Measured scan of single mutants.
Amino acid sequence: EADPRLIESLSQMLSMGFSDEGGWLTRLLQTKNYDIGAALDTIQY
């Protein structure tokens, strides 16, 4: 079963217009401990 923190973070990022095609966003959020800010910083640079 998916981590509730992942579901919450992923749904927030999907609502911002990101896609999780191929699961890349799920993996990114997992490596950033479900921190949306850290994930966005990684995507920006």
Rank of each mutant, 00 (worst) to 15 (best):
E1V: 13
E1N: 10
E1A: 09
A2C: 10
A2E: 12
A2M: 14
A2T: 12
A2G: 10
A2S: 12
A2I: 14
D3A: 05
D3L: 07
D3V: 03
D3W: 05
D3E: 09
D3T: 05
D3Y: 05
P4L: 12
P4D: 12
P4F: 12
R5K: 10
R5D: 05
R5W: 07
R5C: 10
R5E: 08
R5H: 03
R5Y: 07
R5L: 11
L6N: 02
L6M: 09
L6Q: 04
L6W: 06
L6R: 04
L6H: 07
I7D: 08
I7N: 10
I7Q: 15
I7T: 12
I7G: 10
I7M: 10
E8V: 12
E8C: 09
E8A: 15
S9C: 08
S9N: 04
S9Q: 06
L10F: 04
L10I: 09
L10P: 00
L10N: 00
L10D: 00
L10Q: 00
S11P: 01
S11Y: 12
S11N: 14
S11R: 15
S11T: 08
S11E: 14
Q12G: 05
Q12E: 12
Q12K: 14
Q12R: 08
Q12M: 14
M13N: 00
M13C: 05
M13H: 01
M13R: 00
M13V: 03
M13E: 00
M13Y: 02
M13A: 04
L14R: 08
L14D: 03
L14E: 10
L14K: 11
L14C: 07
L14Y: 10
S15P: 02
S15W: 06
S15T: 07
S15N: 12
S15Y: 09
S15I: 12
M16D: 03
M16H: 04
M16C: 05
M16A: 05
M16L: 10
M16Y: 09
M16R: 06
M16I: 07
G17Q: 01
G17P: 02
G17D: 02
G17T: 00
G17I: 02
F18D: 01
F18L: 07
F18E: 01
F18K: 00
F18R: 00
S19P: 04
S19E: 11
S19I: 09
S19V: 12
S19G: 10
S19F: 08
D20C: 06
D20E: 03
D20V: 02
D20M: 03
D20P: 02
D20K: 02
D20T: 02
E21W: 08
E21C: 10
E21R: 07
E21P: 04
E21Q: 07
G22D: 14
G22T: 07
G22K: 08
G22P: 01
G22E: 08
G22L: 07
G22S: 08
G22I: 04
G22N: 11
G22W: 05
G23A: 04
G23N: 07
G23I: 01
G23R: 03
G23V: 01
W24I: 06
W24T: 04
W24V: 06
W24L: 05
W24E: 06
L25K: 00
L25G: 00
L25Q: 00
L25H: 00
T26Y: 05
T26C: 04
T26I: 06
T26E: 05
T26H: 04
T26L: 04
T26F: 03
R27G: 07
R27N: 12
R27Y: 08
R27A: 13
R27L: 14
R27Q: 14
R27M: 10
L28V: 06
L28P: 02
L28G: 00
L28N: 00
L28I: 09
L28H: 02
L28M: 05
L28Y: 03
L28R: 00
L28Q: 00
L28D: 02
L29I: 05
L29W: 02
L29S: 01
L29D: 03
Q30F: 10
Q30I: 15
Q30T: 14
Q30H: 10
Q30A: 08
Q30Y: 10
Q30G: 09
Q30R: 10
T31V: 13
T31L: 15
T31P: 01
T31F: 14
T31Q: 15
T31W: 09
T31R: 14
K32T: 15
K32Q: 10
K32V: 15
K32Y: 11
K32H: 11
K32L: 13
K32D: 02
K32F: 11
N33M: 10
N33A: 08
N33C: 09
N33W: 06
Y34F: 10
Y34C: 09
Y34A: 04
Y34H: 05
Y34W: 02
Y34P: 00
Y34N: 06
Y34I: 01
Y34V: 01
D35P: 01
D35Y: 04
D35T: 03
D35R: 03
D35V: 05
D35A: 04
I36P: 03
I36E: 00
I36T: 07
I36R: 02
G37T: 14
G37H: 10
G37F: 14
G37L: 14
G37D: 14
G37N: 15
G37K: 15
G37V: 13
G37A: 14
G37P: 11
G37M: 15
A38L: 13
A38I: 09
A38V: 09
A38H: 08
A38R: 09
A38F: 06
A38T: 08
A39S: 08
A39H: 01
A39D: 01
A39W: 04
A39E: 01
A39M: 04
L40Q: 04
L40T: 04
L40M: 11
L40S: 03
L40H: 02
L40K: 04
L40G: 02
L40R: 05
D41E: 15
D41M: 15
D41N: 13
D41I: 15
D41A: 15
D41G: 09
D41S: 11
T42L: 11
T42V: 10
T42M: 10
T42C: 11
T42A: 15
T42P: 01
T42R: 08
T42D: 14
I43F: 04
I43E: 02
I43G: 01
I43D: 02
I43Q: 03
I43W: 05
I43S: 02
Q44H: 14
Q44I: 14
Q44C: 08
Q44Y: 15
Q44N: 15
Q44G: 12
Y45W: 13
Y45M: 15
Y45D: 07
Y45T: 11
